[in-house]
């Protein structure tokens, strides 16, 4: 049955072995198809645990997750075919060229031959890396690596894209290219789940935001509604209002 939600999370709990406090404490939320969902929170709030569960990297202690109507517990293999992940780390092989990296990752998604070549050429062109396609990634600048890291997560054109701080530590030019492309991808129907510490970027990019802290979702809604309802100037002020100024580990 076709559902409106791209992702539906119910009563999700994760308690790591050896720990008594849950990293994620009975959270529930849903992400509509075609939306850009921002999961914001301070360090140790539970963002990465939540994303890791949604990507099938770790198992929840309890609760259910459905992605495109498929149970994550039962249909993880099917779900992996429709998701893309862009990790915060530059998850590339530095001694391989950009082309070789993308060729390998494309092959891992079942892409091959001319289709793969065309996709690699297309995305390298979009992100301004075509001239450096044959250079080893270890020679790239931070911005170039970030752009290539993004291509690696989207070249198979997933229906749902998970991004973990995709623009951290890069220049404004690279950040602009990346956010513009994410907007474009979203307009073409891709659901995006995004985590970041950059509140302004999240406010501009996301159609829906959830602020998570100490394993609980404190609040969720569109950025405009949240700013209006809480009478704050922007999402950053709201974030501090909800999570406080205490330093986190």
């Amino acid at each position: 049955m076709e559902t409106r939600e791209s992702i539906k999370v119910e009563n999700l709990i994760k308690i790591y072995k050896g720990s008594t406090a849950p990293a994620v404490n009975s959270i529930s939320f849903s992400v509509d198809k075609g939306s850009i969902f921002g999961l914001l929170g301070p360090n140790g709030a539970g963002k990465t645990t939540t994303i890791s569960i949604l990507c099938g990297l770790i198992k929840p202690t309890s609760g259910t997750v459905h992605i495109h109507g498929l149970s994550l517990e039962k249909k993880a293999g099917e779900i992996k075919k429709i998701i893309g992940v862009v990790p915060q780390e530059i998850a590339l092989y530095p001694t391989l060229t950009a082309y070789e990296n993308l060729q390998y990752i494309g092959n891992m998604y079942g892409l091959k031959g001319d289709v793969l070549k065309e996709k690699i050429r297309h995305y390298l062109d979009i992100f301004g890396l075509e001239k450096n396609a044959k250079k080893r990634v270890e020679t790239y600048s931070g911005g170039m690596k970030r752009r290539l890291n993004l291509i690696a997560g989207i070249m198979h054109e997933p229906k749902i894209l998970f991004l973990d701080e995709p623009t951290v530590g890069i220049d404004v030019q690279s950040r602009t290219v990346i956010t513009e492309f994410l907007h474009k991808m979203n307009k073409q129907g891709t659901t995006i789940i995004y985590t970041s510490h950059l509140m302004e970027e999240a406010e501009n990019l996301c159609s829906h935001i959830a602020i998570i802290d100490e394993g609980h979702i404190k609040i969720s809604g569109t950025p405009e509604n949240l700013i209006r309802e809480h009478s704050v100037e922007n999402i950053e002020k709201l974030f501090l209002k909800l999570t406080g100024k205490k330093l986190r580990d």
């Binding site: 099938g56 992996k80 998701i83 780390e89 998850a91």
Partner: peptide, 18 residues
Amino acid sequence: DDGSYLRLRTMPGSYTTV
């Protein structure tokens, strides 16, 4: 360390093949 392992595990198919 560099996250490639996580990326590989989010890809379709068994990690045993990798």
